[in-house]
């Protein structure tokens, strides 16, 4: 009985330590945002937030700029997620189920695109986007982010589809289902956990993206939060508390999206496990 309790206590402690490490940066952002100027560089660091400084959050939101940045980030991240998953499912399915000439080359090329740094592609893509009138638009950013994240989404989904027994699809075909029906009715529900996982990857990629956003967007009202926060960094000074307040607000929607997607990862994993 005693060894069992010690084991449980150690496990709880372990979980608390991991949780602490994961949550501490968020906590420290709040503490820094809610610190007075003199507390910021005091010999003894302040460990608890000073709620009398809460005005910094109100000031950050007052002009409406921060909310606009968050809205733009949300549009870009959700758009990228929908587009990359919408294209990634058929691509992953084709790579998994069909044999065609050059299939191996396509797979390697998809992997190759993941090795190119974004900075290398800024200038050629800028010229291309200019020609197609995609500069200074959120749609353009959705497109470029989807292009970068699509290969990894497709390859993960291909792996998930590989794991589905072909017999399931054959049974559906015997019942008269067309390939598209097989994909949407049989495969998609079964790979729901993988779709949720890739949605998280796509969302976070687009949410944090900076290089394309800072170069392709000219209108301040269209900038996403990743660029908006950088605007606070001045040549001669940076309002650290404001930066931390906006950065904290910047992390919240991403956390909410992750929690939403995580529910589906778990729900999908258990789907079909018990006969209904």
């Amino acid at each position: 009985m005693r060894p069992l309790r010690i084991g449980l206590t150690l496990r709880i402690l372990g979980v608390l330590v991991v949780l602490g490490v994961a949550v501490f940066p968020l906590y420290w952002m709040i503490v820094t945002a809610l610190s007075s100027n003199s507390d910021l560089f005091a010999a003894k660091a302040r460990l608890v937030p000073d709620f009398s400084q809460f005005g910094v959050f109100i000031d950050a939101l007052a002009e409406g700029k921060a909310l606009g940045w968050l809205r733009n980030s949300l549009v870009i991240a959700l758009g990228t997620t929908v587009l990359s998953i919408g294209l990634g499912i058929p691509l992953g399915y084709a790579l998994s189920r069909f044999s065609f000439w050059g299939k191996a080359v396509v797979t390697v090329l998809l992997l190759f695109t993941q090795m190119l740094p974004e900075a290398l592609m800024v200038v050629p893509l800028f010229s291309l986007f200019r020609r197609f009138g995609l500069l200074d638009s959120l749609g353009g950013l959705i497109l470029v982010n989807s292009a970068f994240v699509l290969p990894i989404v497709a390859l993960i989904l291909k792996g998930a589809i590989d794991g589905i027994p072909r017999a399931l699809e054959e049974s559906a075909r015997v019942d008269g289902a067309r390939p598209l029906t097989v994909l949407t009715r049989i495969n998609v529900p079964l790979i729901a956990p993988s779709i949720a996982a890739t949605a998280v990857i796509a969302f976070f990629h687009a949410w944090n993206e900076y290089v394309f956003a800072v170069t392709f967007i000219f209108t301040p009202g269209k900038q996403p939060a990743s660029v908006g926060i950088a605007n606070f960094i001045g040549e001669l000074g940076t309002p650290i508390q404001t930066v931390m307040a906006v950065a904290f607000m910047f992390t919240l929607p991403a956390v909410v999206f992750y929690l939403f997607a995580q529910r589906h990862v778990v729900a999908g994993m258990t789907a079909g496990a018990v006969k209904g």
Binding site: V123, V214, Q223, V227
Partner: peptide, 20 residues
């Protein structure tokens, strides 16, 4: 125009180099 200071030169020169 709000161009962040840390990447100001790089961003503006890229835009200008492409006629924007």
């Amino acid at each position: 125009a709000a161009v962040p200071y840390p990447t100001f030169g790089q961003t503006v020169l890229t835009q200008m180099g492409s006629g924007q």
